[in-house]
Design a protein around this nucleic acid. Structure first.
Lengths: 149, 149
DNA sequence: TAATATAGCATCTTGGCAGTCCTGTTTCAA
DNA sequence: TTGAAACAGGACTGCCAAGATGCTATATTA
């Protein structure tokens, strides 16, 4: 548990594929074929990423997608937020009005410390970039994201 | 959405309560009353934590629970694993036989780098202890867990 | 104009979380 | 000895979000 959804998995694959493609337009079908991802689901994800401005879309025949954000400025946190919505370690860090307010003890003895853990988690996810994921063969890629208190 | 389940929330509350209680036996009802947590759910969680050896149970009237692991050696990762099962950022890090094997590209271009992120996440969760959560008023509590590449 | 490819919904299914309940066992205290 | 308190270990159900599919519209190319 504490697992990313499949949509995010598909998004990671797609975005990394686009990162490798550079400025070339790549269709959803090409990405799906290249990685064995179900095309309709991949398209759902790419449509979302287009709406959030993380990729540009080119419609029509010979159309497809291009990364709209440089891979080294495209964070994992941003990707998750685009596809799943904002990360919230626990409900009480979610300010959305539909999120049931924490009815537990007031003042909640955990609130402050959990909040810190939550912030640290987001810092962590914000330090991981698509470039880290896509170009793992770089010297020490994946070792770069540091989270220091 | 990369969110802890309520069971884990309840477990955090219970375990922190027990941490404050020291070696005193505290009943599930007392904890539930103290924090407004639904008793049956809290009991489910405590039963689990007892089976995993994180708390000791005392049966019978005047019975209850005592922390079985020192708070500063009781990690958030351990708590989550006890209540929800092991943390797996993506499915392909889950070796369980019932976990569908990743049928995506072989060799998966993301596997290595995602694995690193996953390991880093677990290191992070393993560095947060119940003591950090329960005794937030300690000097710089919550600031302690450092995750450095 | 036909084929290709994205846009935007709408819909359906399913698995797991959340919650409830029941029965049994242990211990204390009257 | 008996009743109450409290934990043990399940089974069971409802519900919601994730997961997946489908349809129609629009844009572009050849």
């Amino acid at each position: 548990m504490l697992t990313l959804t499949r949509k995010t998995e598909y998004a990671m694959i797609a975005v990394c594929h686009l990162a490798h493609a550079g400025h070339k337009v790549v269709s959803a079908r090409d990405i799906a074929d290249a990685h064995g991802v179900p095309l309709p689901l991949l398209m759902n994800v790419l449509k979302r990423l287009n709406r959030t401005g993380h990729v540009h879309s080119v419609r029509g025949a010979k159309g497809g997608y291009v990364l709209a954000v440089p891979p080294d400025q495209f964070t994992l946190d941003g990707l998750i937020e685009a596809v799943e919505g904002p990360v919230h370690l626990v409900r009480c860090t979610n300010p959305a009005k539909n999120a049931r307010r924490c009815t537990l003890t007031r003042p909640c003895p955990l609130r402050a410390s959990v909040r810190k853990v939550h912030d640290r988690l987001r810092d962590f996810l914000g330090a991981v970039t698509i470039a880290d994921l896509a170009f793992d063969d770089r010297p020490d890629a994946g070792e770069t994201p540091k989270v220091i208190a």
